[in-house]
């Protein structure tokens, strides 16, 4: 019953959660900033932290904007893929 009834009915909400969770996981910042600031040899460097460092510690706004654009493209491509895949699997009541 769980597999045939509950999951299909929940699928729109699961999709919303999936999309937001993937985006949120790309936004990791505070943890690595507070603990290691990018860490030994960039081992704990994340995209947002990199943007922050380039923009506000080594004042290279143009470079940081370019990184931010790439960041945005990656997230958008992932979201579009998720939505494409979900078209077959998500059940809408209408």
């Amino acid at each position: 019953m769980f597999k045939k009834v509950t999951v299909p009915l929940l699928s729109p909400i699961i999709l919303l959660n999936l999309v937001t969770a993937v985006i949120d996981s790309f936004r990791v910042f505070v943890n690595s900033y507070a603990i290691t600031e990018g860490g030994p040899l960039n081992e704990s460097m994340f995209l947002v932290l990199y943007i922050y460092k380039k923009a506000f510690t080594s004042i290279r706004m143009g470079y940081a904007s370019a990184v931010a654009t790439i960041f945005l493209i990656i997230v958008l491509v992932l979201t579009v893929i998720e939505l494409k895949i979900s078209k077959k699997k998500v059940y809408y009541a209408e």
């Binding site: 999309v19 937001t20 985006i23 790309f26 936004r27 910042f29 947002v48 943007i51 922050y52 923009a55 706004m61 940081a64 904007s65 931010a68 654009t69 960041f71 945005l72 997230v75 958008l76 979201t79």
Partner: peptide, 15 residues
């Protein structure tokens, strides 16, 4: 807009 991470628009917002 809900799907755009806020950090991506951080720099223009700062300006």
């Amino acid at each position: 807009a809900m799907m755009i991470p806020s950090q991506a628009i951080m720099i223009p917002q700062y300006m």
